[in-house]
Nucleic acid binder design. Structure first.
Length: 238
DNA sequence: CAGGTACATCTAGTTACATCA
DNA sequence: AATGATGTAACTAGATGTACC
């Protein structure tokens, strides 16, 4: 296993704590990575000793509690710390070698990634490799950047959609209010006209907007047609 | 062909760190 | 200088698709 294998998919992954890029079905750490007496071996040249409670038995637990996740991260950090000095020797990764735990992409790198994202929001392995070489970062970093970028895009779109729906809702409420007001006026007008009472029954029919039943005539008709208020739920009317 | 396995990659959610006001 | 808010790189868990046996 080479250094890029360890760093490329994240230390924790390759150490077998979890496995996004490794093996999704078996959550147990690979046996070949877990040395004896709680030490983790990546290469013959690098062995990290761990306290007893962080030994293979603990790490191979099928479920990971918060505490174990925390410990796992502590281990990862420690592993990274040890590895970083080694990276420095090999001059493979600038951000790790300068002690920074988290890489910040340069403006140029971000711009290139953005440019690439505009062309295609997902990458095939070849494109990923090419972009990684071009940017002088690991393919895994390109992959993660695209994942996060897609998530950001989706989030923004959701916010936009939410705004649109909100406006739509406001507009409909407004329209409903106007219609209700208009209806009240018509009803008032109707009551004010004595001639209205002499009109045939058919002319007084009204339709409930929520159940679409004809009201105001017939045996089973309610005493008066019912309308819904914009301030109450239509379901409450029928 | 169906089923199992390994692997790569995805999404959604979370964490941790860098940066800035 | 300290601190809280914010943006984002990196991680985790689980799902899915594909290739192979």
């Amino acid at each position: 296993m080479g250094f890029d294998d360890i760093c490329g998919t994240g230390l924790a992954l390759k150490l077998g704590f979890s496995s996004t890029a490794n093996n999704q079905r078996s959550r147990k750490p690979p046996a070949d990575l877990l040395g004896k007496e709680g030490s983790l071996s990546f290469e013959p040249s690098l062995t990290l000793s761990l306290p007893k409670d962080q030994s293979a038995d603990h790490l191979s637990s099928s479920t990971y509690s918060n505490a174990s996740v925390k410990r796992k991260r502590d281990i990862s950090t420690e592993v990274e710390r040890v590895l970083s000095s080694r990276v420095s020797d090999e001059d493979l990764d600038d951000h790790v070698s300068n002690g920074s735990k988290k890489l910040r992409l340069t403006k140029v790198q971000s711009a290139l990634l953005e440019e690439s994202f505009k062309q295609h929001s997902t990458l095939n392995p070849k494109q990923k490799q090419h972009l990684a070489r071009k940017l002088n970062v690991r393919p895994r970093q390109v992959e993660v950047w695209f994942q996060n970028r897609r998530a950001r895009t989706k989030l923004k779109q959701t916010e936009v959609d939410c705004e649109i729906l909100k406006k739509c809702c406001e507009s409909l409420t407004d329209e409903n209010r106007k219609l209700y007001k208009e209806l009240q006026e018509l009803k008032a007008l109707k009551l004010a006209q004595p001639l209205y009472r002499q009109l045939p029954a058919a002319a007084t029919l009204a339709v409930c907007p929520s159940c679409e039943r004809v009201a105001g005539a017939g045996e089973n008709a309610p005493a008066k047609p019912h309308f819904y208020s914009p301030f109450t739920s239509p379901s409450a009317t029928c």
